[in-house]
Simulated scan of single mutants.
Amino acid sequence: MPEKSSKLVKIDKTDRRILEQVQQNGALTNQELADKVGLSPSPCLRRVRALEEAGVIVRTVTVLDHKKLGLSLTAIILIGMDRHTPERFAAFEEQVAGYPEVQECYLITGQDADYMLKVVVPDMDHYHHFLLNRITRIQGVSGVHSSFVLRRVIDSTALPLGYLS
């Protein structure tokens, strides 16, 4: 999936405070958000909508506890492709986009791999099935190297907004 425009959006300190709050809790009501950032509700809502329209706020999600849902195994998979063509990459990306086990997929450089996937499954049996019946069956996959997460040391979706003016 191609990334959206990377055109920089100018934000001020109030926008940054709004973004910091919604990254921590996307379920805040507009009134709660306005109170936290020191605005009245109407200007707060206008700013949030402007950030959404500018593509800064892409979507609001709920983060689930994977272990409480029985998804105890996280794997990082490095995948090599046999040919480096736009068609081969597009076909691979379209295929993995349909796999609910894949949380993240990156086209990478600097490794002996072309893609890095983050995959969440219940256990090693499910991982084995996923690897053999899905990943290795994608046309063009020429190499797979798996690593397994022992412990999540930092697991954040928040962006570092301190760099913004």
Rank of each mutant, 00 (worst) to 15 (best):
V120I: 15
I57C: 00
H145C: 08
Q139V: 09
S72F: 12
L150G: 07
L150F: 11
A75V: 11
I77N: 02
Y127D: 09
K68S: 13
G110D: 02
Y99S: 13
R137F: 04
S147P: 02
R137P: 05
Q95P: 02
S146W: 02
T74H: 01
S146G: 07
S146N: 09
L64T: 06
I138W: 00
V63W: 02
L159E: 15
S156C: 07
A75M: 03
G110Y: 01
D114A: 12
K67I: 08
L78N: 07
H66D: 11
T109F: 01
V96L: 05
F130I: 06
E94S: 14
Y127K: 03
E104P: 01
G70S: 09
S146C: 06
T157Q: 13
L69Q: 10
A90V: 04
A90R: 14
V56E: 00
I135N: 03
C105G: 05
R59Y: 05
D82K: 14
Q95N: 11
V63L: 15
H66N: 08
D65W: 04
E94R: 13
E104W: 05
I108D: 08
D65K: 10
P86G: 09
V61H: 03
H66R: 14
K67F: 14
A91E: 15
P86N: 05
L69H: 05
L132A: 09
Q111G: 02
V144E: 02
D112V: 03
E87D: 15
I77G: 01
G140S: 14
D112W: 01
E94K: 14
L159Q: 10
V61R: 04
D125Q: 09
R134K: 15
V61G: 06
A158K: 13
V102G: 01
V61P: 02
K118C: 08
G70Q: 09
E87K: 12
K68D: 14
T85F: 10
L64I: 12
S142Y: 02
S147G: 13
H66P: 04
D112N: 11
E93A: 14
D125N: 13
Q139L: 11
I76N: 11
Q95F: 12
V149R: 00
V141E: 02
L69D: 07
E94Q: 13
P122A: 13
I138R: 02
S147I: 04
L159K: 12
L73W: 01
Y106P: 05
F148S: 04
V120Y: 01
M124W: 03
I154M: 05
P122K: 09
C105R: 02
A75K: 04
H129R: 14
L117G: 00
V61Q: 07
C105Y: 04
G98W: 06
Y127C: 08
L64S: 10
R152T: 07
V141H: 00
G143S: 15
N133M: 10
E104T: 06
E93H: 07
D123S: 12
I76S: 10
L73H: 04
P122T: 07
V141I: 09
R83D: 11
I154C: 06
I76Y: 13
I138H: 03
V144Q: 00
D155T: 03
Q103S: 11
N133L: 07
T109H: 01
V63C: 09
V149G: 04
T109I: 07
V121Q: 01
L73A: 04
T60Y: 15
R152W: 08
V141G: 03
I77L: 06
F148D: 10
